[in-house]
Design a binder for these strands. Structure first.
Lengths: 190, 190
DNA sequence: TCCGATGGCTAGCAGCGCTAGGAACGAGGT
DNA sequence: ACCTCGTTCCTAGCGCTGCTAGCCATCGGA
């Protein structure tokens, strides 16, 4: 009984170890550096051990992505609740989203760019993800007027998402980022 | 003299063949299916021939992307010039952009998502790309007022880009696409 | 007719995600 | 105390990737 419990605990710890190692490796060297061999070496186990925890590399990325969602949600909430008025709240949430994407580009990719079979716009979506989206929604709410709140939030999110992915991909000059962000906020804060 | 000319002509034709085959293969089966072996088989030459034309697979994708830019520019221009007023022009250009991304997801990825070393926001950017961006800019111009036109265009572009990439990645429900697009246009048509 | 250069081919390298099969270890029954 | 069974983990390897070294045939010019 207690033996089995210890084993399950150790197994859970190792799973955490895998996800943490994958995240750190991705954040420091990019997802290209996260190979199953490299990851196995990092956790000091052999390669097949990874497959006893996750179905494959994509599933590991998905686990990292969910972790990232929780972090993002916390940062968005902090930004939103510490703002003085709705206009500033929207700006703060937008800036927090952009800052998160900028500080954690690999994490951002796993969450929002990389093809992954996580459920997203459904009730089965991870709680942390729904929470993050909820923070965006609350920031957008004061400006929804007659429009559907969820759809408007998705549109705002799309704007932020495009801003960050195009800039990270080298499609837009970094110097104008603040101006673009301000313009986007302006368009939605009416 | 004429012999050398013939050779250069044949070589140019083969290069076109490579780009066309890569594009068709990507559009019909996705970029994962475009391996150098598969592509070589498609053009009925051996693998190393590809490397005498292009530095690597990424360079082939870049060539396909530039082709796509020309197509996109043409469609955006058609949409813009056939609209009755500025408001409708912006809506038409936005819809055309979205339709292009939807009809050619692989092409869109090569152009705007995949990491590629094409120069983008500089004078050295491919002409076709600048033309496509120029169409967006002209559609946005009537609504720029005191804001910097280029930056505002980039912001609008980001919105469209986010709309399409998040939807294609399964992050937003397809059913609400039209509503989101309309909301985005609304935000920029003031 | 012979020579030299060019161009395309075969074969192979290192690395990828993933898996089959065997060895070693520990728990439970006799 | 010993044997057996089940679990766990590792070694080795498969088929694939992008890319390249080195050979060989073909063809233009002297």
């Amino acid at each position: 009984m207690s033996i089995q419990a210890r084993r399950e605990r150790e197994r859970a710890e190792r799973e955490r170890l895998i996800v943490t190692a994958a995240r750190e490796l991705a954040e420091s060297e990019g997802w290209d550096a996260v190979t199953t061999r490299r990851l196995a070496a990092e956790i000091e186990y052999s390669q097949p051990v990874l497959y006893s925890h996750f179905k494959g590399k994509d599933a590991i990325m998905a686990a990292v992505a969910i972790e990232g969602c929780a972090d993002l949600a916390a940062e968005l909430r902090a930004a939103r609740t510490s703002a003085a008025d709705p206009r500033q709240a929207l700006a703060a949430v937008g800036a927090a989203f952009a800052a998160f994407a900028d500080r954690h580009p690999a994490l951002f990719d796993a969450m929002f760019v990389h093809a992954v079979d996580l459920p997203f716009a459904t009730p089965e979506a991870p709680a942390a993800l729904q929470e993050a989206f909820g923070e965006l929604r609350e920031a957008v709410r004061p400006f929804a007027h007659d429009d559907d709140l969820g759809t408007l939030t998705e549109t705002f999110w799309s704007g932020l998402h495009g801003l960050m992915t195009l800039m990270h991909g080298g499609r837009m000059r970094r110097e104008d980022h603040e101006k673009r962000l301000a313009l986007l906020i302006d368009r939605f804060a009416h």
